[in-house]
Measured scan of single mutants.
Amino acid sequence: MATGGRRGAAAAPLLVAVAALLLGAAGHLYPGEVCPGMDIRNNLTRLHELENCSVIEGHLQILLMFKTRPEDFRDLSFPKLIMITDYLLLFRVYGLESLKDLFPNLTVIRGSRLFFNYALVIFEMVHLKELGLYNLMNITRGSVRIEKNNELCYLATIDWSRILDSVEDNYIVLNKDDNEECGDICPGTAKGKTNCPATVINGQFVERCWTHSHCQKVCPTICKSHGCTAEGLCCHSECLGNCSQPDDPTKCVACRNFYLDGRCVETCPPPYYHFQDWRCVNFSFCQDLHHKCKNSRRQGCHQYVIHNNKCIPECPSGYTMNSSNLLCTPCLGPCPKVCHLLEGEKTIDSVTSAQELRGCTVINGSLIINIRGGNNLAAELEANLGLIEEISGYLKIRRSYALVSLSFFRKLRLIRGETLEIGNYSFYALDNQNLRQLWDWSKHNLTITQGKLFFHYNPKLCLSEIHKMEEVSGTKGRQERNDIALKTNGDQASCENELLKFSYIRTSFDKI
């Protein structure tokens, strides 16, 4: 039985969820670079991206490699990797027998973001014989899940209580170790020597080791999670996991709180800001991140802002960003909400898709409305799209047979046209069989910064309504002859009103 693990408890099935942008060198404390989270699957090609990484700022997932063999891993080693800020997950990587050479110096898994409450997941690794993470000293947050690894031993010899604050939620089941077939031998045991430290858990006094050649490092209890030197002297209180010299914040392997210019500090002093819960960055760093993602459509890219001495992905609820200094300031009234469309555009074809934009005031991208039916549609669209004030790209209304009016965009005031449909149009209306009105132009103002209007096959939309939009939106004169079809717009509506004058002759039985 794995020490510190839980057996036999019912657990939810383990679901495996399925960018080499360097964020800056980590400095003297770390020998390499800070790398983003990685999802490495199918083959070993991307694994080489770990070569210079000291910190993975995010998670590391290595999974679904069915053609790899043990010899493929023999020359692979990433000794610079010290810390993973989120979680480490391995799933069905064939041929991998140990992690001792792959990650010989991995010391800390912070667990800032977890995989279903777990910071370390080893699942269905069919050839893994031992973990071998002999320098792993601290899992700051989260638990361990090690399950269905039929060859995995050296679990009962690990004292997880020396690595985690609590072992109650560890789930370590259905491994070879369960069948008591392992016969784990710690260093020196074969020669009758006791080389590794022994600890007591559940009444068992057991030597602690990761492999037959690597003991588990056990520091004096007084050192807590700070770690200790090879001689057993406690590291500085700002260290986490390990250090090369005692009581020196510049000799830590990793930091308990924050890293700044080669030393570990309790908090980031001005003019620095907390970033990702582990390091200090200056304003320029946060500003660069903001600008890199301002026009990016890459998933996970955030326009970072500053709030409460932190550089964070977005302002919290009730705050909006001051564009001059990136500071989050309290909103006066309802907060603006910028919604970034991942692929640059979004099609609204149902109430469900409209709900995804609920509360958005600025759309960074283009909207395509293609709704053919739905219950209580006008009210639903207004509830979900009615706060949109600005669209950076274009607005396209296409084959939306259920629409009679666009009044559900009740606050839309600006279409920038930074991206144009077919390279020309910022407003595009095609084949809307029941569209009769755009907006009530006596109450609604709309500016279209650039781009043209396109109207074709809107049989109940009168040309007068379209011409009014040209005047109000500032697009009059931009359109070419064929942009607004004269014969297919309003051709099934009563669009022309003329005053009919009647004269009559009164007659009676005795007068003409």
Results as ranks from 00 to 15, higher is better:
R145D: 03
H302L: 05
Y87Q: 00
K129W: 02
T229K: 06
L120N: 01
I146V: 08
E238G: 05
L233R: 14
D75E: 10
P316N: 10
L152R: 01
C35M: 00
L60K: 00
G318L: 06
C243V: 00
E57Y: 09
E168M: 08
T199Y: 04
F205R: 02
L114G: 02
S317T: 12
P79S: 07
I306H: 02
S324P: 14
L152Y: 01
E49C: 05
S143E: 07
N322G: 13
L90T: 07
I185V: 14
D75A: 04
Q276E: 11
S166L: 09
C186S: 08
L64M: 13
D288N: 14
S98P: 00
N202H: 14
L60M: 05
C35W: 00
K129M: 11
K294P: 08
N308G: 07
Y118K: 05
D247S: 03
K148G: 05
T189F: 11
Y171A: 11
F258E: 01
L106Q: 00
E49A: 07
Y118L: 04
Q299S: 03
H212W: 09
N42I: 07
V253D: 14
T189A: 10
L120E: 00
S323T: 11
K129D: 03
A230R: 01
T45W: 14
S323P: 13
Y30L: 13
L289F: 06
L233C: 01
L114Q: 08
P79D: 04
S143M: 13
P187E: 13
I62S: 00
E124Q: 05
P246F: 11
L90V: 07
G32V: 11
N308V: 12
H212D: 14
C209F: 02
D86C: 01
S323A: 12
N175K: 14
S112P: 00
R256K: 09
T199I: 08
I109R: 00
L133I: 09
I40S: 00
C315E: 03
T211H: 09
H302P: 05
P31Q: 02
Y94D: 07
R256D: 07
H236S: 13
I84T: 00
Q303L: 09
E147P: 01
F275A: 03
A156P: 11
S112F: 04
H307F: 08
P336Y: 06
K310I: 09
E151C: 06
N325A: 13
K294N: 03
K193I: 03
R46P: 07
R162G: 05
W210G: 04
G318V: 03
L50M: 09
I62C: 02
N149W: 01
I122N: 00
D75C: 07
H291E: 08
N175L: 10
P334S: 13
K193A: 05
T45I: 09
L114S: 07
L131V: 12
V265P: 01
L260W: 09
C182M: 15
D277A: 11
Q216V: 11
V34E: 09
D248S: 08
V34S: 03
C252T: 02
C153A: 04
R41K: 02
R162Q: 14
V218S: 12
E130G: 05
D39A: 12
M125Y: 00
I306A: 08
T199A: 09
I222T: 10
R279W: 05
Y273A: 07
C182L: 05
G227I: 08
S225E: 03
N170Q: 05
C331K: 07
L240I: 12
T250D: 04
I146A: 06
S317M: 09
H307P: 01
V200R: 10
Q303C: 15
N202I: 03
V126I: 05
D169I: 07
C53Y: 04
K294A: 11
V265Q: 02
C252A: 00
L102G: 02
G241W: 03
C186I: 06
T107V: 08
C328M: 02
N309D: 06
G142E: 01
P316R: 09
D261V: 10
G32A: 07
L89P: 00
H59E: 06
V121E: 00
F115Y: 13
F258T: 03
W160A: 02
L96F: 02
F78R: 02
G188E: 03
S284N: 12
T68H: 08
S225F: 13
R41M: 02
P316L: 03
R162Y: 09
T157H: 13
T329C: 05
H274N: 15
P330E: 13
C182D: 06
H28L: 10
Q61R: 02
I139M: 10
K191L: 07
S213I: 06
P330R: 09
H28M: 09
D177H: 15
L50G: 02
V218G: 08
